[in-house]
């Protein structure tokens, strides 16, 4: 179990380092921005018109903005470490509350899109892998290359044009009903499929041509039995590892998709906060995304260890 523990510790360390870098980056950005920080905070608190030099001065003292930078940095990192991310400059609500609300939307969209992508990719990839060079293989390859060359927002715009504007089957944006989920989830799924189909196909091709598969038949197993006993598990290793990793890469997709479909997830929150320079929310969203990335990577590692005994040996070494 030593190996598993090592992997877990490594990922936790990675998550902490990611968090530290993000928090530090945000601190640097906040202080590197042009203009007086206290004035900006005051403007955000009481509104642009009512800011006076006195309120700015008061906020400077209250928030400790007059202390040396290094002390402020220590304070900042301390707060982050305690999970105190402050309040949103825009809404005034605690950041944690905002994050929890939006994260549930993102998780929902991410899970549905991810599952959908494997519902599409698994049958196509396996069929392509069973007949490399065949018609299914060539068609899925063309599909994958095309989709891989389309940025997510183009896929989304294409789907909106077709299903919302031309056919009028589905609503183009929003989040109130299940129908609102269809286009964003499909957009996400299609952008994931571009990369998972080749992975699945190659895993199947490689396992089918592995010598131990041939040898299993020399030992007397039928082709079907050989694939059941030896093929599935070995082909599953790269696929499962990749699938888990892809769940982490959903992040790139959902920022764009949520903005495009006006869907109130973390990505949309982050983009709005970035445009408004709402630092506490930006940092909070960044931390959640960074942590989610680390957790999913950890899950991917553990999955691989569970499926592939060789991984454990490597982790020990």
């Amino acid at each position: 179990m030593n190996g598993v523990l090592r992997v877990i510790m490594l990922r936790i360390g990675q998550a902490l380092a990611t968090a530290a870098v993000l928090a530090s980056l945000c601190f640097v950005f906040v202080h590197a921005l042009p203009g007086d920080l206290a004035l900006r905070v005051a403007a955000a608190r009481v509104g642009d018109e009512r800011v006076t030099p006195e309120t700015a001065e008061r906020i400077r003292r209250e928030e400790g903005l007059d202390r040396p930078l290094i002390v402020q940095y220590g304070q900042w990192m301390g707060n982050v470490a305690q999970g105190d991310l402050g309040r949103s400059l825009l809404s005034g609500k605690p950041v944690t509350q905002e994050l929890a609300y939006h994260a549930s939307f993102t998780l929902q969209l991410g899970l549905i899109g991810w599952l959908l992508s494997y519902l599409i990719a698994l049958p196509l990839g396996i069929m392509a892998g069973f007949r490399p060079g065949g018609i299914v293989d060539r068609m899925t390859n063309a599909l994958a290359v095309t989709l891989a060359s389309l940025p997510t927002f183009l896929v989304g715009i294409g789907l909106i044009t077709l299903f919302a504007l031309t056919l009028r089957w589905l609503p183009p944006a929003g989040f109130r009903t299940g129908a609102h989920m269809v286009l964003p989830a499909f957009t996400l799924a299609l952008s994931l499929v571009a990369f998972s189909i080749p992975v699945i196909r190659n895993a199947v091709v490689e396992v089918r041509s592995a010598f131990f598969m041939t040898y299993a038949r020399v030992k007397g197993l039928t082709p079907a039995a050989a694939f059941r006993h030896h093929g599935v598990r070995n082909a599953a290793i790269p696929v499962v590892t990749y699938a888990a990793l892809q769940f982490a890469f959903v992040i790139d997709g959902f920022v764009v998709i949520e903005t495009l479909f006006n869907y109130p997830g973390l990505g949309e929150l982050l983009v709005k906060a970035l445009i408004a320079r709402d630092v506490p929310v930006i940092m909070g969203a960044g931390l959640v995304i960074g942590f989610a990335f680390a957790v999913v990577s950890l899950l991917a590692d553990l999955m691989r260890l569970w499926f592939d005994p060789r991984g454990l040996e490597e982790a020990r070494a």
Partner: peptide, 20 residues
């Protein structure tokens, strides 16, 4: 390099472009 790869691809660019 490992540390930088631990960030999801677009996040860093988002932060830099967004802030600056």
């Amino acid at each position: 390099a490992d540390l930088m790869l631990a960030f999801p691809g677009l996040l860093l660019a988002l932060l830099f472009a967004g802030f600056l």
